[in-house]
Design a protein around this nucleic acid. Structure first.
Lengths: 212, 212, 212, 212
DNA sequence: TATGAATGAGTTTTCATTCAT
DNA sequence: TATGAATGAAAACTCATTCAT
């Protein structure tokens, strides 16, 4: 069995899980580039290096491709967030700062930001996806934030303790950045690092020993 | 030409501007409901009470319909914003509060919120629109906000004076609200009034004579 | 307006009813030749001298084409039968003989026999069609036959009076002939005239003054 | 090679003839239910408990499946008919009565009636099948009937001796019944026993010692 | 201007058949 | 032999756009 044979094998008869992942990766990049409606199944197949029909061996239809993608996107981010907020030892401000750093490196700095835009765009027409995200991502994420903000409020670290009741506000600048990057970055650069930093300093009082 | 004939004409040959406006209104409601791709020209025509072909007498193609719509949306909002921030007499906090009130009553509370979502969704694929908005809406709006925030900073009213350099943050909760309403409102209500209030109190120090 | 212009006109913008009829005619000939499944909408369009999409302006889908065709087929035959059996003046044997003559000239001798075969073949998968035929053709036709046979029985003209209770038997040789012509005629000719004549003489006693 | 291995083998490598028969049985039931075009090879394989590709080890293509099936159906029926008409000892009326009883119990009362309908439906598009049936079933069957009817005519038992020249008429009510059962039975029951009985009494004079 | 019938390119989805394992 | 993943030709149906009236 020489390497040629192996390469051949690599093209045919992949492990189903791998194949599925390849298709999802192709779909991801195309949906990101062009949006859901403008992406043809055939393009996805081509980008995945397979034939059109093969896509249908793994996904019943185009919608399933989108919903699988959306669902698959969530867990890694959630896991990170969870890991981050779990430790009571960390100061709330540090946790939120970490969240923004995560958003920058894992979403805004990667193709995943396209996916987030896609969820914003198409979510409304895929109630399954919206509900999934609300239940599995937002509820969980907001719950974690609420705890962190609550702790911060109790420790007197928040400029406005009422923030603990509105954890959605924490997400607002992330969404804003995603949208800005998608639409306006070519015309005007947005310094998200500075944006998050400014926002953080608006939410939290300066730590002791910190210069304002 | 008797009155009957005139009545006929009246139904047929409308004032072109009015016709155009009717078509745009129909397009607006359908794009809002279903998105750009899922809206058929024929549906727009039907809703406008005219024939399919007539749409093409007023707009060269489907894209033009969208871009015209997008451009047309901007001016009224801009005018309001402009009127509001113009007066140096008003306190910055009052101005921003007014902006949020405007967002609530004129965007979130109306079908216009769908259009904003549509701009977020489709804008990327319509660079003309994105550029138009950046030049005519964002630049102007952010410029005005920067001035207001600058003034607030000078008057010592901001919790974090650095905010003046990041006027985009002012928009963030509005975008967040639009997205939330579109996707998650059926699953969990968002109290935007409280959201904006909380955000406002986070940005600004309490006015004198105000209870914290 | 010269004849060229008229010919042009003839190709475009036909009277909708005429167009519909042309499409049905094309569908009829193709379904007859190839069966329902093997006929492509595009072929129907081509044969009707129009574009694929035009078919869909007149019929919502392929099934509707078939059901319309089936429904449309029925009425002329029914009218003929009705006219024939209506007159009490005619002798029952003459009426049935006329029915077979009609079957020969109007069904077996024309393309309509293909349609009858088609109904036999596909009817099961189009319950709408089967029900339509049962209600509007069979019930009516069998009712008429029952009356005629009843009258014949009362007049002592039937070899077996019990026939009046089984009018379906009258149709049996027609169906048999249609099937034979479709499948076996190339291998062995069936003389339907003789077949019907023989059957008729089997059902009825010889008229007076007739040689057996 | 222990018994376990043998059991494995037994499940995998069946006797080819048995395998073939299983596939045909599966094809039969599916063609009957859905028709030729609407039956997928994969469904046949599944119902036969094998993989799709295996079907192709036994039959070159879908058509071959149908023609094999059609050919295979013929012989048992033919054998029965043959056995029945062979005995000169039996009265012609009894023989024909037996034929109808056979048709009722072996065709109309079983799934085979679907197959007969299928032959009627699809036969035209499978000349091989039509020719096979004409040569091996019809010619033979009609020949036998012709003899029986000839004998009946000579014995003066037929109402109309000319029937001997039109043995196809004997089949007519069977075909009629198959078609009725397929299409109209849900809307109106057909009593085939009575139908055949009535037809028989129409063909034959009452036997002596029989009440009319 | 207004109409809406007509067009046909474009897209999704299916399924008979092949072939590497 | 047996498998079932892979293929890609084929077909139904859609809809932006055109154009004769």
């Amino acid at each position: 069995m020489d390497s040629h044979t192996m390469a051949e094998k690599a093209r045919k008869r992949r492990d189903p899980e791998e194949r599925r992942a390849e298709i999802l990766a192709a779909a991801f990049s195309l949906f990101s580039e062009r949006g859901f409606a403008a992406t043809r199944i055939e393009d996805i197949a081509t980008r995945a290096g397979i034939a059109k029909g093969t896509v249908y061996l793994h996904f019943p239809d185009k919608e399933a491709l989108f919903t699988s993608l959306a669902a698959g996107m969530a867990s890694p981010i959630l896991a990170r967030m969870s890991a981050m907020t779990a430790s009571d030892a960390m100061a709330p401000k540090t946790i939120i700062a970490g969240l923004y750093a995560l958003a920058e490196s894992e979403i805004l700095g990667t193709d995943r930001r396209h996916m987030l835009r896609l969820l914003i765009s198409e979510g409304q027409f895929f109630p399954v996806v919206a509900e999934f995200y609300h239940r599995n991502v937002l509820s969980v994420g907001l719950g974690m934030l609420r705890q962190v903000l609550q702790r911060a409020a109790e420790r007197g670290e928040l400029r406005n303790p009422a923030l603990a009741a509105m954890p959605q506000l924490i997400f607002a600048p992330i969404l804003m950045s995603v949208i800005w990057k998608s639409l306006f970055e070519p015309y005007e650069h947005l310094d998200t690092k500075a944006l998050f930093e400014t926002f953080l300093e608006t939410l939290f009082l300066p730590s002791e020993g910190e210069d304002s």
